[in-house]
Simulated assay, not measured.
Amino acid sequence: MTDRPNVLVPIQILEGESIPEGVPGLLANAHVVLLGYHVIPDQTAPGQARMQFEERATQRLEEFEEMLEEAGATVETRLVFTHDGQTTIDRMIYEHDCIAALVPKATGPPEDVLVAVRGTVGVDRIARVVAGLFRETGVAVTLFHLAAEDETDEDVQTLLDGVADRLVELGMDERAIRTRIGRGTDPKQAIADAADEYDAIVMGESDPSIATFVFGMRAKQVAERFLGPVIVVQRERPEAESDGNPGEDSSDEPQ
């Protein structure tokens, strides 16, 4: 039995962002950490902002929570007023042991998902997310790797077959797993081009900064070139960070 993967879904709760169409179905088998956050000016105290906006923000957060739960997800919510949105996201990923974070965009009912496999690092974590979300759902997953110049198709196929075997071990139907090899020099464009045929992308984080990858330039570039949601599987937390905070922000305590 595959456990529900913890997936962070950050929403700028007072900036008009919402849960896009199709996302609840995509995360039906996840444990969602739903983060409603609002970035406030440096001169504004988080407690002051909470007093002013908490009721409206909480109401919206509860509406989104209900949407996700109706689709089948388990949900815990956090509401944070902060001076640094990225650091808050970073901290929430660590505090709630989220294996993935979602760049939320609208999609149809998930039927075909592209899984970008960039190398052997993090492959097991990617497999755990994919199997946890899509095992026994009828969703087809395509394992995609952009080959380097010195990689043969046989080398890449061996890598992808290994990921497929791990997915089967985790309960995926092997008939729902496909493989695809790409060639090119721009990984972001190659992934985005390949993803045009799919409802969502699952891709591994490679940048040391979680927040930068999820909401910074790399993920932003992929998301801008692709209309659907992107699930970014987080790197394993380094041992050196296991007892410390990944970064301090000026948030009030989440509720």
Rank of each mutant, 00 (worst) to 15 (best):
T2F: 09
D3F: 11
N6E: 14
V9S: 09
V9K: 05
V9M: 13
I11Q: 02
L14C: 06
S18A: 11
E21M: 09
V23H: 01
V23I: 03
P24G: 08
L26E: 01
N29Y: 02
N29F: 02
H31G: 06
V32I: 05
V39E: 15
P41I: 06
Q43V: 12
A45M: 04
P46N: 07
Q48L: 13
E54L: 05
E54Q: 12
A57H: 05
L61S: 02
E62G: 03
M67R: 13
M67E: 15
A71L: 06
G72R: 11
G72T: 11
G72N: 07
T74Q: 12
E76C: 12
R78H: 15
R78I: 03
D84C: 02
D84R: 05
G85I: 11
G85V: 09
Q86D: 11
R91H: 09
Y94E: 11
A101S: 14
K105H: 14
G108Q: 13
P110E: 04
E111D: 13
E111S: 14
D112L: 03
D112R: 15
D112Q: 10
V113Y: 08
L114K: 08
L114T: 02
V115E: 11
R118G: 14
R125T: 12
R128V: 04
V130Y: 01
V130A: 10
F134R: 03
F134L: 04
A140H: 06
L143F: 08
L143K: 05
L146K: 03
V156K: 00
Q157I: 04
T158L: 14
D161H: 01
V163P: 00
V163I: 12
R166E: 14
R166I: 09
E169L: 12
G171A: 09
M172A: 12
D173K: 06
I177N: 00
R178P: 06
G184Y: 07
T185P: 00
I191V: 15
D193Y: 06
D193L: 10
V202Y: 01
G204N: 00
F213H: 11
F215L: 14
M217Q: 15
A223P: 08
A223Q: 07
E224H: 08
F226P: 00
L227M: 14
G228C: 05
V233H: 06
R235Q: 15
E236N: 15
E241D: 13
N245A: 11
P246N: 01
G247I: 09
E248F: 07
E248R: 12
S250D: 05
D252F: 00
E253W: 05
E253T: 13
Q255V: 08
Q255L: 14
